[in-house]
Structure formats: C-alpha cells, structure tokens
Design a protein around this nucleic acid. Structure first.
Ligand code: MN
Ligand code: MN
Ligand code: ZN
Ligand code: ZN
Lengths: 147, 147
DNA sequence: CTACAATTGAAAAACGTTTTCAATATGAGC
DNA sequence: GCTCATATTGAAAACGTTTTTCAATTGTAG
C-alpha cells in the first residue's frame, strides 16, 4: 500500500534517456531535474545558471546538447516568448497550448481550444490547406495580478 | 473623376515617415518599396539582397535601422516563422492573424477569429488575466498545394 | 544656397549558438 | 568489481547575426 509507484517526472525522463540509448550523466541529471519541474520556460543561459547550483562543473554547451536530446525525445519543447524565442519548457501532453505570464514568465498549459470552425473558414477564404496552428495566450498570472 | 487619390502603400509609408520627423532617403525608399508590396515575411538579409537590386549602395545596417523605424510606426511587424523568428511583414490592419505557407513562405492575413469563449474558459481555469493572444496557421498555399 | 542635424555604410564589437577536440565518465560484458 | 570501447564532457575557437562606433554624406528647414 505504501509501496507507491511514485516515479517522479525526473526519473521518467532519465529512464527515457537511458531507454533511448543515451547515457545518464551527472550534468544531464542536473538539467533534467530542473526542466522536469520548472513552471517557467527557460532559456539556455538560465538553465546553465540554475544548473550550476546543482552541478557546478556544468558547461553551457552541455545545456544546448541536452536540450536538443530532450526535445528530440519529445520531453521538452521550444517556446516563443516576448522575452525570447529559444526558451524551453516541459512538452505538452497531447493537444495543449500555453498561457504565459508577461511579467514573471509563469507558463501553464490548457486544452479545449476549438478552432476547427475558424480553420474551415480560412481554408475557404484563402485556399490554404492548413496543417498546423500556433496559439498562445499572454497575460498576468494570479500571483502577478496582485502586484 | 479620373483624379484618383491613388496613393500607393509605398507613398503612404514614406509620407508617414516624413510626418514623424524622419527623413525620406534613397535607401529607405528602396526598403519601403520592397516591404510595402511583399507577400512574404522577409528576414533582414533577404531585404538587404532584394534592396540592393534597387539601390546597390544599401548597407545591411540600414536595413536593420529602417525596420526598427517602420515597426515603431506600426507599418511593419515582426513575424515568428518556422524558418526564422526575425522576419518582417506589412503590419496587420486591425485584428488580423496570419496563415503562412510552410513551403514558400507566402503570408496572408485573415480576420474573424473568435476565441473570446476560450479566453473566458482559460481565465476561469487558470486564474490568468489574459491580455493578448498569438494565433498563426500554417499550411500550404494554393500554389504550393499543386506541387 | 547654406547650415545643421539626421542618416549613411564600413568596420569593429558584442552576442548567442555551433563546432572542434582532447580528456573523462559511463555502462555493457566479463 | 574491473576492463574497455565509446558516448559525453567542458574549454576554446569558429560561426552567423545583430548592435555599436564613427567619420563622411545627405536631406531639409530657412
Ligand atoms: Mn489547438
Ligand atoms: Mn485574435
Ligand atoms: Zn520566435
Ligand atoms: Zn506556398
């Protein structure tokens, strides 16, 4: 009963890396720990700074290379922000989009957008064959709303 | 009657520059001519290359500086694309969003998106105060659909 | 036409990202 | 556990893009 199958997201990601033939190294553990739990999209330099608290020898190059792998495995995704276009966040589960706080960067996924009707309209009016869409909402998160 | 008020978009932009206290110079004319008529979002280097056909002395720095001004005046806007995040296109008129061709880059504005309902749902479920949204559709333009 | 400030392009600097490379650490096989 | 082939590492160099600096040029108000 208290024998939980409590696999943290972090452990899942590391297992995923291993299962894909990649090695589980100390620098990767530091980065995964960070990314699996972050509620903010982070840019490589921020990941580097944060990660060095955990593993001081960490190199910025390794951050880039690890993000590349995590993205390839679908664990992390790139986010375009007002503050930068190379920010990384835990990937969406299924069809989700992001709400982002313009003040603190807090990011949250939501689902349930229904733009099928719009896509039909645009298909008709423009003749485009639409295959993909980007949708992102921006505003203030609950914490930032109250100064 | 045949005395048309046929001010080209290009001339409007130049007038706008002048009215804002900026000078109308040959390099700016070359860039404006290009941007006011382009149906593709262009990156600075492409604008530079195209612009040099018209005005061979054009410098890349001037492209950057002119885009900065045109954006400030709301005549041009930055577009995030799969192929690049620093592309520029004629700004939207009012509330419009973009459909972009993933093959040739052709861009078209559309309006009539209604995501008010979605915004309400997300406001309720996340507590965010939503102030802005990005919506972009991607696919194949009519020309690219037929190979 | 003149005079002055805005604008220009070349060159240098700054920036973020990628490549190169020798040293190191990992994990499979014993 | 120990060995070994090799995946991974960080530092340094290279890279492409954007910004800054600066002296020469150009636009425009008067
Ligand atoms: Mn959607
Ligand atoms: Mn809209
Ligand atoms: Zn972007
Ligand atoms: Zn096309």
């Amino acid at each position: 009963m208290s024998e939980e199958t409590q696999t943290s997201l972090c452990d899942q990601w590391l297992a995923n890396l291993a299962a894909s033939g990649y090695r589980v190294t100390a620098p990767r553990r530091a980065i995964v720990e960070l990314m699996a739990s972050s509620t903010h999209a982070l840019e490589p330099l921020a990941i580097y700074d944060q990660g060095r608290k955990d593993y001081p020898g960490l190199g910025l190059v390794t951050v880039y290379r690890t993000l590349e792998k995590l993205e390839e495995l679908g664990l992390v995704q790139r986010v375009h922000h007002h503050q930068g276009c190379h920010m990384y966040l835990r990937a969406a589960h299924g069809h989700e989009h992001l709400v982002l706080c313009t003040r603190c960067g807090h990011a949250e996924y939501f689902s349930g957008d229904d733009i099928g009707g719009l896509i039909n309209k645009v298909t008709q009016s423009t003749g485009f064959e639409i295959r993909e869409h980007w949708l992102q909402l921006f505003g203030l998160c609950p914490a930032c709303k109250n100064q």
